[in-house]
């Protein structure tokens, strides 16, 4: 694999507005139960001061996708650019991928009885456009990047944040710019 597309999430700039989540829903008009992308607020106890920090997580298009490994019908494929695509037509709804993914991203849609997930808007990416979540991020906190050693070598780029499962399970294609905390002159 020479390429691996993935996300760079800036937790300093992410204000937790859920714009990325809703952009995805707006484009695909997914069922209410489906949250292919989801914004989580990091537990405050992870930081020395009260915090308001968020992570936006869609499919991480992992280098070692557990979903793809366990799928009995071969519904998952990993493209040369690293995007992990789920073929809804092949899926038989066994939900094993749902059990296998630590990020909860493949989701069973009980209306059509199959699993669905984020395919990184590959049709848009193929046209040179950004995925809907990235394109919609008002604060500029979510980017589509090549995950490689030169990205990992940059200072401030982290492989995980508090509350996320260990990256060793699937080797996810997401990196973070960690939150910073300012001074707080509080009354408490």
């Amino acid at each position: 694999m020479n390429k691996q597309l993935g996300f760079l999430h800036n937790s300093e700039k992410c204000v937790g507005c859920r714009g990325c989540e809703m952009a995805c829903k707006n484009l695909y008009q997914t069922d209410i139960s489906q949250r292919w992308r989801q914004v989580f607020q990091i537990d405050e106890n992870a930081y020395p001061l009260p915090s308001r920090m968020f992570i936006s997580i869609g499919c991480n298009h992992c280098s070692e996708p557990q979903c793809m490994k366990v799928c009995p019908v071969g519904a998952y494929t990993k493209r040369d650019d690293g995007i992990v695509i789920h073929d809804d037509n092949r899926c038989i709804g066994c939900r094993l991928c749902v059990m296998a993914c630590p990020y909860g991203r493949p989701q069973f849609n009980s209306v059509i009885n199959i699993v669905q997930k984020c395919n990184l808007c590959y049709q848009r990416v193929d046209k040179g456009e950004k995925p809907a979540c990235v394109a919609s991020c008002v604060a500029g906190a979510l980017e589509l990047v090549q995950i490689n050693s030169s990205l990992d070598a940059k200072t401030g780029v982290l492989k995980t944040l508090p509350g996320l499962p260990s990256p060793s399970i699937t080797n996810p294609s997401i990196r973070f710019v960690g939150p910073k905390q300012g001074k707080q002159v509080r009354r408490d």
Partner: peptide
């Protein structure tokens, strides 16, 4: 279809 991914899937 469930038998179509023998290479890695224990379910297959």
């Amino acid at each position: 279809r469930a038998v179509s991914h023998l290479s890695t899937s224990w379910l297959s």
